[in-house]
Each structure stands twice: as structure tokens, then as C-alpha cells.
């Protein structure tokens, strides 16, 4: 019981932890895809210098 309480306090219950992790992964990957990889002229032009600077495959 005590052990469970400590665990909840340090990093959250396992189920909740996985939920946060998956949410963060999906949203984060979406951001990286949009800024770095998406095949859109407008996104490419806006992020052009940053795409080169992060070494995303470009052009």
C-alpha cells in the first residue's frame, strides 16, 4: 500500500504514465513531421533554414 502511494507520487500510476507517454509521442511526432518532413510547399518554405540546420533530408 505504502509502496503504491510512493510510486504514484514519483511518476504516476503505470496506466496513466503510458497514456501520457503515448500522447506525448503522437503529438511530438506530428510536430516533427510537420516542421521537418511534411511534403508541403508552404511548410517547406517556412521551415527551410531550420530543416537544413537540423539535418532533415531536404529538397
Amino acid at each position: 500500500m505504502a509502496n503504491k502511494t510512493i510510486k504514484t507520487h514519483t511518476i504516476g500510476a503505470a496506466g496513466q504514465r503510458i497514456t501520457i507517454a503515448v500522447t506525448a509521442l503522437i503529438v511530438g511526432a506530428f510536430f516533427i513531421f510537420g516542421a521537418g518532413l511534411a511534403n508541403s510547399a508552404v511548410l517547406h518554405d517556412t521551415a527551410h533554414d531550420a530543416r537544413h540546420a537540423y539535418g532533415f533530408p531536404c529538397h
Binding site: A24, L25, V27, G28, A29, F30, F31, I32, G34, A35, G36, A47, A50, Y54
Partner: peptide, 10 residues
């Protein structure tokens, strides 16, 4: 900012 937020979440 978008890349930073994205890598932060990952």
C-alpha cells in the same frame, strides 16, 4: 519552436 516542442514531447 515547433521542432523544440516536438522533440520535448518525444
Amino acid at each position: 519552436l515547433v521542432v523544440g516542442a516536438g522533440y520535448g514531447l518525444i
